[in-house]
């Protein structure tokens, strides 16, 4: 029996990774939900928007690194982030102008717009592969750990190390700031309020003099911003590979639907539900359990419910359960 070591192992292998991953998914799902509630379609290009934003930031980071600018212990990518956001927002606004606006004016059915977003996804994917290629890119720098596992062992005298990677800390802190900013923006500012009104009832909002073009533009800018941040954080924490961003679509949509499509709080909750389920189901519990049970009962098996290759199955299963038993999600969706 060694409760402390078990707790540390739990924190190290389940809680902290889950928290960081959850924050990344939550940001991704926020973008999807925002576009859904204002522009009223499921944006299949969102994964590639994240990849595009991450790519822009990476290019800028490399340039900063080459001319010797750094951010001390923090990743240089954070300095490059505003440039990445600006580039992505410009790209997304251009897409809206060239592609989506036509269908909005036509009042095309949401499914048509979803197919159009598939086209945008193709184009973005092509552009990304064209510029940065399909390979894995590493752009993380600065200090590796906020809490070094060796230091922790020395400090506490426990056998089990606890590590908090800088990227994990940065992820969680950034996500908190972004979410706080977004909620403040939606609740307190004039533009945010008009976005909420627009999402509740478009016709009424138009009657009360809200400028729809402005609402749409602001929505795209925010969506591009959150997508870039989510993309960069994910890339810092894991690594940047264009195809993984396409694969993120499933957990991100699952998070948004589980939380209730159209509900920002739901998106955040959904992100953490999906992330923690994924981590807990694919974690090998052997170490933690062996700390807790008496020595003679110690197990050799990994105690892993599913191999990490099947992590998508976890988000899929949760998605199906929610679709079957509460189709509107944890937080009744539909409006901001």
């Amino acid at each position: 029996m060694d409760v402390l070591n078990a707790l540390v192992a739990f924190l190290n292998f389940v809680f902290i990774p889950g928290l960081a991953y959850g924050a990344q998914l939550a940001l991704g799902a926020l973008g999807v939900t925002l576009v859904y509630s204002i522009l009223r379609f499921s944006n299949f290009a969102h994964g590639d928007t994240m990849a595009f934003g991450a790519m822009c930031t990476i290019l800028m980071t490399w340039w900063f690194q080459s001319i010797g600018i750094s951010f001390g212990p923090l990743p240089t990518a954070l300095l490059a982030l505003p440039f990445g956001i600006a580039a992505t927002a410009a790209f997304v606004l251009a897409t809206d102008r060239v592609v989506y606006r036509f269908y909005r004016r036509q009042k095309a059915s949401p499914t048509i717009v979803v197919i159009v977003s598939l086209g945008v996804m193709f184009v973005m994917n092509g552009v990304i592969r064209f510029i940065i290629g399909v390979d894995e890119q590493n752009f993380s720098d600065g200090a590796r750990f906020v809490l070094n596992p060796q230091d922790f062992k020395v400090m506490t005298g426990l056998a089990e190390p606890l590590a908090i990677k800088t990227t994990q800390a940065v992820t969680v802190v950034t996500a908190v700031i972004v979410v706080a900013f977004l909620f403040w923006f939606l609740q307190k500012t004039r533009t945010g309020k008009s976005m909420r009104a627009f999402s509740d009832n478009e016709d009424l909002a138009l009657l009360s003099g809200i400028n729809p073009d402005r609402v749409v533009a602001v929505t795209w800018i925010i969506a591009a911003g959150i997508a870039t941040i989510a993309g960069v954080l994910y890339g810092l924490d894991k690594s940047f590979k264009p195809f993984t961003y396409f694969q993120l679509l499933l957990p991100i949509f699952a998070a948004a639907i589980v939380g209730g499509l159209g509900s920002p709080i739901g998106a955040i909750a959904g992100g953490f539900v999906i992330a923690f389920s994924e981590v807990m189901v694919t974690n090998a519990w052997k170490k933690i359990v062996n700390y807790l049970v008496p020595e003679h009962m110690a197990t050799d098996s990994l105690l892993q419910l599913l191999s990490t290759d099947y992590k998508f199955a976890v988000s899929f299963t949760i998605l199906i359960i929610v679709l079957l038993f509460m189709p509107t999600g944890l937080f009744k969706g539909k409006s901001l």
């Binding site: 499921s42 699952a254 099947y310 199955a313 899929f316 199906i320 189709p327």
Partner: peptide, 21 residues
Amino acid sequence: SDYLAIATLGIAEITVSVIKN
């Protein structure tokens, strides 16, 4: 309608990962 899209997207990924693993 878009729930079917997400569900089929998911089942496709899972099918291929089963065959892979």
